[in-house]
Design a protein around this nucleic acid. Structure first.
Lengths: 337, 337
DNA sequence: CTGTTAGCGCGTTCAC
DNA sequence: GTGAACGCGCTAACAG
């Protein structure tokens, strides 16, 4: 049932305890200035009365908060969950709490979320990637709080950033692919502009194949959040045309979907076709055939990002842009060297 | 860089526009009482000055908010992301915003989050499951806002709930398994008490096998968030003892990990051993062998839950407990009928 | 150690 | 259509 009683406020507790409001305030916050006797009694009463401080009033009074606002593209997949896990631990132990929303890759949704976040006067804001609407950037550059952009890197971040170089990651994939003798590569991803980091990786692969082999990179793009199914469908579509000798994927889950599609079409991996994933996800550890993929340090990224943001909040200086290393992980889904 | 200027407030905009604070307030909120000329000018200036309303002050003044607090066990896996997707759309279009945190299956973490949530005076709170610390329950029952418990069901929810009957789901699995002729079942899951819904499903399977076959259900439990790896390891452990003829899993990802383990041990599915997953995840759609699993309507659950909570917020009455249907999906990883 | 005063930024109420 | 007071619940700064 909806209960209609007004919430208990600090004044109610003070009246009940026969002390001033300030004593209650001090007792609750655990600051000095109350005798231990009173403090204990006040805390007991507060608990009994189910008193919950009003954060709105508190934030208004102290003009700051210990809130970190986080914007993520999606909760689907392990990637952002991993980054988040790294960040949260760091924030928690520093006494900060975080609020999260997902944009589903929409810059407008991101702008709306940033507006709402700013209205809560957070201590800091974390955005995913470096692509934002001009208004988002304006708002954030004008805001009196540090801003962290994560997962991607940029020469000119809004404030600071921690990520990996997705274009270089694509180049790394391309170079290994060329070294392994592949000549007709393809890339299965989501709709262009949906995930701009994946787009950058594709461009990296393209650049290498254009430069070293004068070969184009076919691409198949399906807009969907279902990674396995999308990998499968994108691959099926690709295989209905000129069959490539290598397919790179947005991530390991899509790569697995793609492998299943190849298998369904009677193509053998890696003899007929090579497969390269991305992110080295949990799934890769159970496959009978080691998946060729790229290792990204997502949890570390979260920890470093959170740490740097906290440093900024505390007025310290940190690197403007931290680029984390990535590593190509050769497996059995591509030809042996 | 951290910018040190104070944020623009409504007073600043008023001064710049040569109007009273109240006119700005009315213009910003889009309520009547300002001429269209003034409104347009005020909005233009506010935008130019990058004015962002202070939600703390606003909430304090109006004593309510359009905030929904959500507590989830984890972001890992598709399950809660799906439920969330259903909920968010509903809340968004109703003008509510939501803040989410994960508890990583810790009731104490849930309590802390609930405390923090309550301090923001939200319009409603959503919890996962029906297992909470006594203090969490007290706090929430005393709070003047509706509370939705999701994913599980209970005869006596804190306020309202929308979910499925996990014990019955286990029974359903058990009954199908018995009908298919299985006699030596096992269940691979996480540590007991970690995911109490999974525990309930296991008990459901146990009840059926005890009743119909007087057979025990072996179980292997590994605490980890990595579903694929956990499924693999739990299965390997299980197979080192008396080999069961059927293994049920916490979800499809774990089931796939388990299948890979069986394959590694030279066991053929479904001839040597049967596999049953749960949730019918995206992965199932790409496997060459249809996975026997149980379909849950997660997105619908989110939508129904959000709708019911909104109804409660608006003072309407709704069902105390809504139990959604589930469906056994026979596949090729269990023996044919 | 304890209590009083003033004000955080905004919206309600009631004047004009 | 417009604006001036007051108060939301809490805390900083000061007084005792």
């Amino acid at each position: 049932m909806v209960k209609d009683s007004k919430p208990t406020k600090i004044e109610d507790v003070a009246a009940r305890a026969n002390v001033s409001i300030m004593s209650v305030s001090r007792a609750i916050r655990g600051v000095e200035g109350v005798s231990e006797k009173k403090r204990a009694e006040i805390l007991r009463l507060a608990r009994e009365m189910k008193y919950v401080p009003n954060s709105n009033a508190r934030s208004l009074a102290v003009a700051n908060s210990n809130l970190i606002g986080i914007s993520l593209p999606t909760f689907a997949g392990e990637v952002f969950a991993d980054i988040l896990n790294g960040m949260r631990k760091t924030f928690d132990s520093a006494g900060y709490s975080s609020v999260i929303d997902t944009t589903e890759y929409s810059p407008e949704a991101e702008l709306n979320w940033v507006r709402r976040l700013l209205s809560w006067q957070p201590a800091g804001i974390i955005l995913t990637g470096t692509d934002h609407t001009p208004e988002t950037q304006d708002l954030l550059r004008a805001a009196p709080i540090p801003v962290l952009e994560i997962w991607d890197q940029s020469e000119d971040p809004i404030d600071i950033c921690v990520g990996i170089d997705h274009f270089k990651a694509g180049q790394m994939i391309g170079e290994h692919a060329v070294a392994l003798g592949y000549a007709r590569p393809a890339f299965v991803s989501t709709a262009r502009g949906h995930d701009t980091r994946a787009d950058a990786r594709l461009e990296g692969v393209r650049e290498v194949f254009a430069r070293l082999k004068s070969a184009p990179v076919l691409s198949s793009r399906i807009a969907s959040d279902n990674n396995f199914a999308t990998g499968f469908q994108g691959t099926s579509e690709l295989l209905s045309g000129d069959v490539p000798d290598l397919i790179c994927y947005l991530n390991d889950h899509m790569a697995f979907g793609g492998m299943m599609s190849c298998q369904a079409k009677g193509l053998s991996v890696p003899d007929d076709i090579g497969i390269i994933g991305f992110n080295e996800l949990d799934l890769a550890s159970v496959l009978p055939m080691e998946l060729t993929t790229v290792r990204t340090l997502r949890k570390l990224m979260g920890i470093v990002g959170a740490r740097n943001l906290l440093a900024r909040i505390n007025g310290a200086k940190t690197d403007t842009c931290t680029v984390l290393p990535i590593e190509f992980v050769p497996g059995q889904t591509t030809r042996p060297q």
